[in-house]
């Protein structure tokens, strides 16, 4: 009897092993097909630009990071501590740019920065998200009610995930595919752009691009998605 109970407990834990779903799984089949084929995924157009930028500049990215396979899994590990502060992938790219290439940092959401991020993120496709740092601050921000609607991220994305907000399904907010080609934007965009959309949606003052709050939130979202597979650069509705 005891063995049976134990088996039942094991079976139950297997059923509840992972109820996390990436945004990909909430999409229509046609949008999934668009992402799956690299000749129909528009984000791959940015990857082509990223590949060219990787070889450009003096010194070029490629002259230090000669082997692209060395960039495997990098996007899955960011945001991470670097030079004493928490940085996301975009900031890490810009750090290389200012310190190693002695060039001006790329602006947030500029074509160049998105292209390089997409090219680097592509190298982590299929790899599990593996951020390490403590995400307590980001968790607090995620649970903080704010804006004129006085809502927190958690209310939609934990409590009501899977329900509908107007015509769309509310996803669980696992950032597996960033930067994403969002059909609504008709362009590629970063996770921070997406977060700003949500903040404006609850009529809150959005945090600035690259602000510590944004990066902490990014880290918390990535830590919630730890172990989930990257599908960047993705397509989202």
């Amino acid at each position: 009897m005891r063995v049976f109970a134990l088996l039942l407990a094991v079976a139950a834990s297997l059923v509840h092993a992972d109820e996390r779903r990436s945004g990909y799984e909430f999409m229509s089949r046609s949008t999934q097909a668009m992402q799956d084929d690299d000749t129909s995924n528009p984000a791959m157009l940015w990857v082509l630009d990223g590949e060219a930028l990787w070889q450009a500049g003096k010194p070029s990215c490629a002259s230090c990071h000669s082997n692209m396979s060395g960039m495997k899994g990098v996007a899955a590990r960011y945001p991470a501590m670097s030079s004493g502060r928490l940085m996301n992938l975009e900031q890490r790219i810009n750090l290389c740019r200012t310190e190693k290439q002695h060039a001006k940092p790329y602006a947030y959401e500029s074509k160049e920065l998105l292209s390089l991020t997409a090219y680097i993120a592509l190298q982590s496709r299929g790899m599990p998200i593996a951020v390490k740092d403590d995400a307590t601050k980001g968790k607090a921000l995620y649970e903080q009610r704010q804006g004129q609607l006085n809502m927190s991220c958690a209310q939609c994305h934990d409590q009501y995930a899977g329900h509908r907000l107007a015509g769309s399904t509310i996803p669980q907010a696992h950032p597996t595919g960033y930067p994403v080609y969002r059909l609504e934007w008709q362009t590629l965009g970063s996770l921070q752009r997406r977060l700003r959309n949500c903040l404006v949606g609850i009529r809150a003052e959005p945090y600035g691009y690259g602000s510590p709050e944004m990066v902490e939130l990014e880290l918390y979202l990535m830590s919630r998605a730890r172990g989930m597979k990257m599908d960047a650069p993705g397509v989202r509705p």
Binding site: D38, T39, P42, M44, L45
Partner: peptide, 23 residues
Amino acid sequence: RALLRVPQRAKRGEVIEIRALIS
């Protein structure tokens, strides 16, 4: 930038699907 999908090989008389995406 453009991305094409054209089959590299095909049989004569076969109907082939072609895709073209451009930025």
